[in-house]
Design a protein around this nucleic acid. Structure first.
Lengths: 221, 221
DNA sequence: CTGTCATTCAATAATTACGTTGAATGAAAT
DNA sequence: ATTTCATTCAACGTAATTATTGAATGACAG
């Protein structure tokens, strides 16, 4: 029976991909790489992990074919190997969202806003931006912002939100986005601004999804 | 900083889903369950594994929220918890297909047909079936066939193909399908029939994808 | 050529995952 | 009640995964 062997081998290939995704740190790396290419050092700083550790995780991802790397002078620039990697990440997140009430509970537990946290869709945002009705803020750190952001967005990193709150017109609705639908930064921003009386909502997705949808990007180089 | 804790917890939830998918046996279980609910014993027979082992894998999947189980007399009927599980499986398979030339190589290595192995799309199949141009054969084992199949398909399990080859009209094109795009059964069937001079192709997907697309199903109860 | 910096490698220890075995449940049939 | 059968549990040894550490590479600057 020549059936068993290749079947096994195929499932092992598929499992290798899933196994590479089966680690919280690596998933976080993928979410960062979904925003654009990054060096090992930058990623290590973002995750707050030792460089050697991040390097190993990245090599793990590379062995599974999820990321690619190329040398750029002293740095090694890692990037997602393919759009299908983000699809897989998204699909896994979707399973978690649907199946694990746990996920909802975690976010709810920390951001106990009884009032509306319903997100804004990309389409709605585009419409309201065109009509000049909203202020769009990107609450990611400045270094991520310069590497790429939604056109028209103002960068207000979460840490600077308090001091720069005067820049925001209280008469206009504010929409905040960051790295993805479960990225904590935008939840915190919404909570903070709402506490100051602003009308504010989160964008349903983050930058990677915006990019994947083929919508225009802007970068400050 | 209240940011770290929930972020970690979220990525752990996502990783738990991927981790459950990161095992060849469990992926094979999911592919079987994508065809319909199954008992532990049936799955164990299909995979050729000890029952206790399969039971543990299924509980593993259940803990991650990928499958659900309900008692039915002496049996326990397992099923996919949600359509999103099949999406995740498909997305992971897509990454493997794109990234790992290995996958292509494995199949090619065992089925070294230089001539056209291009599959038939679902749409093309539906058209040609309506026009009565093709014989559609389901090469899965009979027990899987009776639990659900594409309307109009004839069940010719791979093992019976040789002896029942007379039932197939050599003047009509044959299309074979089985459990999924990489299911080995249909590759073997195509190779065997082509060796006998038949015009024969594989359906690009298998039954789970047909079902997921909302196309009609038929079962022989 | 030397020093510096980003990255990788190698070795270790702690933890977790895996398959196997035989016993324990739980439901149905005799 | 007892038997039978499907499933699960508990315990074990083996293997794989993980983070950590310090040393090794490889590229650039002076």
């Amino acid at each position: 029976m020549s059936i068993q062997k290749p079947k096994q081998a195929l499932y092992e290939q598929f499992a290798a991909v899933a196994k590479a995704l089966g680690n919280p740190q690596r998933l976080e790396l993928i979410e960062h790489l979904a925003q654009g290419p990054r060096s090992v050092e930058i990623l290590a700083r973002k995750l707050g992990l030792p460089i050697a550790n991040v390097s190993q995780h990245l090599q793990n991802l590379r062995r599974a074919g999820l990321v690619a790397a190329e040398r750029d002078g002293k740095f090694v620039r890692y990037r997602l190997a393919d759009e299908s990697v983000l699809s897989a990440f998204t699909a896994i997140r979707a399973v978690a969202e649907q199946q694990l009430a746990e996920v909802e509970r975690i976010v709810r537990g920390y951001f106990d806003e009884r009032d509306s946290m319903e997100p804004v869709s990309r389409e709605e945002l585009i419409d309201r931006m065109r009509d000049g009705l909203v202020t769009l803020i990107d609450v990611r750190p400045a270094d991520e912002f310069v590497l790429g952001h939604v056109p028209g967005a103002v960068n207000v990193p979460l840490g600077e939100l308090e001091e720069r709150i005067g820049e925001l017109d209280p008469a206009r609705e504010v929409v905040a986005y960051c790295r993805g639908p479960w990225c904590i930064l935008s939840f915190e921003a919404v909570a903070a601004l709402r506490g100051r009386g602003y009308r504010v909502r989160r964008l349903e997705d983050g930058l990677p999804e915006w990019k994947a949808a083929g919508l225009p990007m802007e970068s400050s180089t």
